[in-house]
Design a binder for these strands. Structure first.
Lengths: 223, 223, 223, 223
DNA sequence: AATGAATGAGGTTTCATTCAT
DNA sequence: TATGAATGAAACCTCATTCAT
């Protein structure tokens, strides 16, 4: 029994190490350069062993993504459950969820988004596609409900709440992608400024102008 | 002479058709599923013929991307050259450039952004990487200069112009990526609303509040 | 343990069989007709399996050549170490080394010489080129030292020892090449006579005529 | 008529330039790296044009070789016809023929020998093989007859004349091959010494020692 | 449970040769 | 006569996955 337990634990450890390896490789070289051999080497497992823990290559990446998504879902749920407490800070905190989601594992974040793209989903095995899809729906719904509340409460500007929800997410997503291609011009140190600017711009654009006169000057404090 | 001319024209046509095929396939199945065989089949050329027009697979995609980028650069340059005319409409028009860039060939737009990602650039042949990089630098610089002007002229909010430039671009980029993954939840018809909302939010967030009291109400008209 | 050992042995056997196949094919059809498919077929391995044992095509051939070269080096070293014992028989024994080197694996001998040609070396992957080059330098040096000793000791004629060394080798090499093109005219049975004649001529040309009067008559016995 | 003549001449010029290109490439990169494209480029003809002058790739090389062989045959024939005049100088002059054959076009010489190898001959189209074979037989026969005469006349040592003929040729051939692989160790300037040594050794080994006492000292003058 | 070995399927690229003009 | 264009055939190599042990 103790032995069975230990076995299970060990199994989990190895699964985890495979996932980590896959994610790191995805981050460094991209999806199309991911090979079982590299994953095996990096995780110090044999290539064949990977098939003991995962049905196929995609499952490795997707396993990692899904557990990461659960974490994200947890963050959003907590925010939603306490929506009444946060009120004016809802945008700030939603943005914080995204940052958190990203910061915890940037590669998993990117992979999550990457695999959700139409053309990637369509290439996946149906079963994996379904899993990913479901997870996506869950977090999007949750996020929409948060924004819906904020719009109803006139905390955010008045408009279609789903659209607004997408816009907030997109702003964050765009920043991440832009950073991902910014050996092109900007400097590392510039990224922090960019993100900050994004938050500011978004706050000014999204938050309902309760006290119009104050707006311009106060932005920093609100978000 | 006519013959030589016709030959050249035909050659161009076939190059074009290969590029189109590659782009369409990229759009449908993603970079990693792109094969010479599929490109050949789709463009009704033989696999070997493709090598008459391009040195290798990546060059096909990148050729398409670069000519598309030139178009984009043209748009931005025109905007920059006429920046004094546009003034208050600079944001609207910059966003319009992005929309235009995207609308003209969504697949090429996506490929452009995709290949600019760190891990993709690093996997490219050095020569192709250089081409792509250069093209990227050009448009980014141009865009930065436009925003720089708008910030100086107090048309946009006061802040680091490069950061603001990235934010505007990121917002658009994020929208595109979000749409690209939205079999997940939203409907086609919803996308229009989302984009519109993005423009609105961005305008409110970016444009300098000249007449603070009017601001909230006027946004719709301005952008 | 036994299993690991057996695995290793099996691995060695298959490597060997691939090398043999490659060498036989080289012998029959020449370097430029060598293909992985043929090697695979002949060695009863799959094409992919060959890549388990060797990095690429050339490595197969060169592996065979190098181990063959080591054998040759061993022969030369033994001769050099016992040079004082052999003395008058040094030429005979040097020639014997060549014969031995050749006889043990004629195809490997030919391949060795073939790949050492300028134009072939320059087409090889740098790493393989280096290996081959090194091996070449080793045996040439050793051979030069043997001849150097014989010249110093006035066993061979007085002249630049490196040049003389080359000449002895060249005579043997030339015979091999000539035989290799002698479906042209001669008969198999004629080759033995030719080789014998070569030895005789070389002995008469190279050995120092200590007792001039005896020389002509004694040659046969000496070599 | 003049026109026809001119055409023919032009044709010949282009054939020649193709052959030269092929030979130069063979020399620089080896047989297996020879491509029609490279030949075309170097000879400033189009790839298709090459097929107007030659039936296939091998024919280009072989055409060059054959005309070169005719030159060699001429040299040998002259030597044979004047054998009675040359007598003691027969070896020297035979060696001279070889040197001449080689010096006039080293690449063609090497190609000649290379294609005569068993495995190369067997890969050639039958018709080309026949041509090459015939040419080979011609020169070998001639050379054998020269040596036969010298043996009969007791100018050369007494032994099977065909074997001796091969040995002389082999010595020269071996030198050429050895030089061809001598980036390995020796220096350019060393080659002259080597060749000279070869001549000396061969002379001492082959010429009949008419006046035994003189032999050792006189070698240099005789050859 | 674990893994070294094996491989079929498939990818990119090259090239001798043909053909339409 | 000359050639740009085209391609079938084949080469090298890779990799996800299976299998025997």
């Amino acid at each position: 029994m103790g032995a069975t337990e230990r076995r299970k634990r060990e199994r989990e450890v190895r699964r985890e190490s495979a996932i980590e390896a896959a994610m790191a490789l995805y981050d460094e070289e991209g999806y199309h350069a991911l090979t079982m051999e590299k994953i095996a080497e990096r995780s110090e497992l044999s290539r064949a062993a990977l098939y003991l823990y995962f049905k196929n290559k995609d499952e490795i990446l997707i396993s990692g993504i899904l557990s990461h998504a659960e974490y994200f879902e947890g963050l959003l749920r907590k925010l939603y459950d306490n929506r009444e407490t946060f009120r004016e800070n809802l945008l700030e905190n939603l943005w914080g969820c995204f940052e958190n989601f990203f910061a915890k594992d940037p590669a998993a974040f990117t992979a999550w988004q990457y695999l959700h793209q139409r053309e990637m989903l369509s290439n996946l095995a149906p079963q994996l596609r379904a899993l990913l899809f479901e997870a996506g729906v869950k977090v999007v719904r949750l996020q929409h409900r948060i924004v819906e509340y904020a719009v109803e409460q006139k905390i955010f500007i008045q408009c279609d709440h789903r659209a607004l929800s997408e816009v907030i997410w997109s702003t964050f997503l765009g920043i991440v992608y832009a950073e991902r291609s910014k050996n092109v011009l900007s400097h590392k140190d510039h990224m922090a400024i960019t993100r900050d600017t994004a938050r500011k711009v978004l706050a000014q654009g999204v938050l309902h102008p309760i006290d119009a006169p104050d707006q311009a000057g106060d932005n920093d404090e609100r978000l």
